[in-house]
């Protein structure tokens, strides 16, 4: 269970990105975070694995306070949290296989990783995960030779390498076309249902949030303005989250 308590983030320039956000995520949930650009979705996700240091508040994961963890402990926590990104964040000049293997860095000693001495199991695991996302044949291509959808699947394979218990997905389909979006979202859904991962996923499109989320929270200017089931978001709620000017667009 993940518990976020009064999480606040104020950037150095004074921008308040999160204002005392509190919510709880039971294990196995597919939580979708929605909100306008700049509403604090990315900051919230990055605070959970402390890519961004929270200003105040607590994040408890199975009773362990992530916000209080020291460097070593933090790395042990991070390797159990997979993350995928809007821009995929692959190392473009490396091969697909190497990119996937970097998911094991948290479990590999420094000198072995500097020499590229990946263990036999890790290599096998990497190939398995690439097969899982359907791009095993691209294992030895350079990452930037792949299409956007394929690159995101490499990102998913990399996250799977960590054997995570929690998956953070920061707008995973915002750079993809609708058809590819669904294929990527289905992999995330599969991780949630078949592997039992808890998923925290930020999304732009409400239609996608409704389709995949088991629960939705909404941020507006850093504040939690909605927390409930997808079908509870009616027209009034929608305007609360996105503002009066907004019109809902559908992505199928």
């Amino acid at each position: 269970m993940l518990e976020v308590r009064k999480l606040t983030k104020v950037y150095d320039d004074g921008t308040v990105a999160l204002k005392e956000v509190s919510f709880t995520v039971p294990d196995g949930e597919f939580l979708v975070i929605i909100g306008l650009s700049g509403s604090g979705k990315s900051t919230l996700l990055r605070c959970i694995n402390r890519l961004i240091e929270p200003t105040s508040g607590q994040i408890l994961w199975d009773g362990v306070d992530i916000t209080a963890a020291g460097q070593e402990e933090l790395r042990r926590i991070r390797r159990q949290i997979g993350m995928i990104f809007q821009q995929f964040n692959l190392v473009k000049r490396h091969t697909v296989l190497t990119n996937v293997l970097t998911g094991r860095l948290g479990y590999t000693s420094t000198w072995r990783s500097l020499l590229g001495l990946w263990s036999r199991e890790d290599r096998a695991r990497a190939m398995r995960n690439l097969e899982l996302v359907g791009i095993a044949d691209k294992a030895h291509n350079r990452a930037d030779e792949l299409s956007g959808g394929q690159q995101q699947r490499v990102g998913i394979a990399r996250a799977l390498m960590q054997e995570p218990k929690l998956l953070l997905a920061d707008e995973p389909v915002a750079s993809l076309d609708p058809a590819t979006s669904h294929s990527v979202m289905k992999y995330i859904e599969w991780m949630n249902r078949e592997r039992g991962l808890t998923v925290l996923c930020s999304l732009h499109f409400l239609s996608l949030a409704r389709r995949y989320g088991t629960r939705i929270i909404a941020l507006r200017a850093g504040e939690l303005v909605f927390d409930g089931r997808p079908e509870e978001i009616d027209d009034r709620r929608f305007k609360e989250i996105y503002g009066d000017e907004a019109i809902e667009v559908e992505i199928r």
Partner: peptide, 28 residues
């Protein structure tokens, strides 16, 4: 590009590993 640094850090890699896998390939 700070993206790969972020991604590699998120896997639980240490600072040396981050430099080796996310910074060096980009600056070489």
């Amino acid at each position: 590009d700070p993206g790969p640094i972020e991604a590699i850090t998120a896997t639980g890699a240490n600072r040396v590993q981050v430099v080796w896998y996310a910074v060096l390939p980009q600056v070489l």
